[in-house]
């Protein structure tokens, strides 16, 4: 069976354009965190960009970086995961419906609001007629995309696939999230290690990956296996152990576990259970760098891929005190409010 390698990564995040986890400085996460927009002019013609949603532009930028880095020109599939799609345009269109009482509406916001617009516009820009898919399954939307690519590279006659995760912040959606306590409010204490307040520090971003069956000089890591599910059939411990055993690994042979902790006191107990199982294992976190959103776990994959390739473990990722001796196997664990679970297993090449 063929393997699935990460050969290129591109990202737009709340950190400065070109940010690296090995940089000294990071922008501290606030209650709401907008992505730093790079310059799109070199990449997207004004005639095209004038109608593009922020999520589309961020994705095109990140996708382009990932493809360029992997020297991939003709992906045989474009697969995108997004929690809410280009929600800013959904809001715009809905606002217009309400304010103008269903009159004088224009198509642009509606078109940009459809979930598949990101994958579609990447295909249009690349003139890529290949397989094109969009997953919208909340917090494991990105892992759905990763799984699809993984299965196709392993089993089908495909060599190169572009995948990504993207989400936007939009003002009214944010205020609705505030009403139900899903997000942090201004002034809320944001503590990832010992969360005291409910809600997540909402952010946005796009993270894209060029995946291939071929290992290159630029390969970051191999995606060895992943599991995407809505709920545990068994308890957490035995599910994780079984997943590792299936891959000839155990709790002790995981060098770093990357946790999707999101500073939400309500969601912390789940991660605590995982921590207890991996007490001796170096535990890493990343949402204090990316902020939290449905597809933030794609940023987590980027971080994991970068540390496995560089074999270095920046201080700022440390969730506990443990220091890895080597970084060969990484397990990523993510969920949202006890659903949309995902485990992703990465190995050094």
């Amino acid at each position: 069976m063929k393997n699935c390698y990460i050969n290129g990564i591109g990202s737009v995040s709340i950190q400065a354009t070109g940010f690296s986890i090995f940089d000294a400085e990071i922008t501290t996460v606030q209650n709401v965190n907008k992505a730093q927009q790079p310059s799109y002019k070199e990449l997207i013609a004004p005639a095209m960009s004038r109608r593009m949603a922020k999520g589309v532009k961020m994705s095109i930028y990140a996708a382009n970086k990932a493809l360029f880095e992997a020297k991939m020109v003709d992906p045989q599939a474009i697969i995108v995961g997004t929690g809410l799609g280009c929600i800013e345009d959904s809001e715009k269109f809905l606002d217009a419906i309400i304010e103008n009482e269903e009159q004088f509406l224009t198509p642009t916001a509606f078109i940009q609001s459809t979930h598949n617009t990101v994958a579609a516009q990447i295909a249009l820009l690349l003139q890529c007629k290949a397989y094109n898919f969009t997953y919208v399954n909340g917090a494991n939307s990105f892992e759905n995309a990763l799984f699809d690519a993984f299965m196709q590279l392993k089993h089908l006659d495909k060599e190169n696939i572009l995948i990504g995760g993207v989400d936007e912040i939009a003002p009214y959606t944010f205020s609705m999230f505030e009403m139900v306590g899903k997000v942090k409010r201004v002034g809320d204490n944001i503590n990832f290690k010992k969360p005291e307040t409910n809600g997540i520090p909402l952010a946005e971003g796009a993270n894209f990956f060029a995946l291939s069956v071929k290992k290159t000089a630029n390969t970051y890591a191999e995606v060895v296996d992943l599991l995407v599910f809505n709920d545990f059939k068994d308890d957490e411990t035995s599910t994780i152990k079984a997943f590792l055993e299936k891959n000839n690994l155990s709790v002790n042979t995981i060098d770093v576990i990357v946790l999707g902790v999101n500073a939400d006191a309500v969601q912390q107990p789940f991660y605590h259970k995982i921590q207890v199982l991996f007490t001796e294992t170096p535990q890493a976190y990343y949402q204090h760098i990316s902020g939290s959103y449905d597809t933030a776990s794609a940023f987590g994959l980027k971080v994991a891929a970068e540390i496995i390739r560089s074999q270095s473990y920046p201080e700022k990722l440390k969730y506990n005190e443990a220091q890895p001796e080597k970084i060969e196997n990484i397990l990523l664990v993510n969920q949202n409010n006890l659903t949309d679970f995902s485990f992703v297993l990465l190995s050094k090449c």
């Binding site: 005639a47 109608r51 004088f104 509406l105 224009t106 198509p107 642009t108």
Partner: peptide, 17 residues
């Protein structure tokens, strides 16, 4: 000017509005 069919729809709304 390089406008396309979506722009045409936008212009139709402009005429109306």
């Amino acid at each position: 000017l390089g406008l396309d069919s979506i722009d045409a729809l936008e212009l139709i709304v402009l005429l109306d509005k």
